[in-house]
Design a protein around this nucleic acid. Structure first.
Length: 211
DNA sequence: CGTTGGATTGGCT
DNA sequence: GCCAATCCAACGC
């Protein structure tokens, strides 16, 4: 089986379309020492134009500039003072759309991922957007990298998933777009905190029933 | 120029 | 379940 790198045309579609199509694909990262890391994408979120939840909603800035460039490039941003998140730019140049890679299953280079993460369990290596970037050694230096023609990080074809689930995006109040996509039942999906409409589960209250 | 809070995580109660 | 950590982009004055 020959791994085929995803072409520019793959990314030149709406984020909503590209996002679910990225599930099951493999993200590959190479390092100066010749080693590699690879992981199968199991969870993503789409961020489109005219989308209040998107970094691009208020127009182009220094931080989100890559989002407004041509599709098939990596948009990496820093958040919460300590985490990086990585996206694949989609759509047309000037549009400002991207797909956030939220979780993946380690396939190759798990030992090095564990070292970068300072965590041993396979389930804790790539199961969250911040965890994934740390496991792959991706940070702002990689913002703007070409995923189609670059040599440090790219995306390859992978086994098509069977069951894809959708829901509202994590940390996004808006509920009209169900643009979070993940592999149903896959243990590597992030814990995430879905907002509404997912019913909040209330812990049973302890009641002192003194009749 | 000061303030606010985030496309999160990990540790503690 | 709750919250601190820790930087900085975005926005208001």
């Amino acid at each position: 089986m020959t791994a085929v790198r995803l072409p520019r045309s793959f990314f030149a579609r709406s984020a909503e379309e590209v996002a679910p199509d990225l599930l099951g694909r493999v993200v590959v990262r190479t390092f100066p020492d010749g080693s590699r890391a690879a992981a199968r994408i199991v969870e993503v979120e789409a961020y489109g134009p005219d989308d209040p939840a998107s970094h691009g909603f208020r127009g182009r800035t220094a931080r989100n500039a890559v989002m407004f460039g041509p599709p098939g490039h990596l948009y990496v941003y820093f958040t919460y003072g300590m985490h990086h998140c990585m996206n694949a730019v989609t759509g047309r140049a000037g549009e400002g759309a991207a797909v956030l890679l939220r979780a993946a299953e380690p396939l190759e280079g798990a030992d090095a991922m564990a070292a970068r993460r300072a965590r041993q369990r396979l389930l804790d290596l790539c199961s969250g957007p911040g965890r994934l970037t740390q496991a792959l050694g991706v940070d702002r230096r990689h913002d703007g990298r070409d995923l189609v023609a670059g040599a440090e990080i790219w995306l390859e074809d992978g086994p098509r998933p069977e069951a894809v689930a959708t829901g509202n995006r994590v940390g996004v109040q808006e509920t009209s777009r169900r643009w979070r996509f993940w592999l149903e039942g896959n243990p590597f999906v992030s814990r995430g905190r879905p907002g509404p409409p997912t019913a909040k589960r209330r812990a049973p209250r302890v009641r002192s029933t003194t009749p």
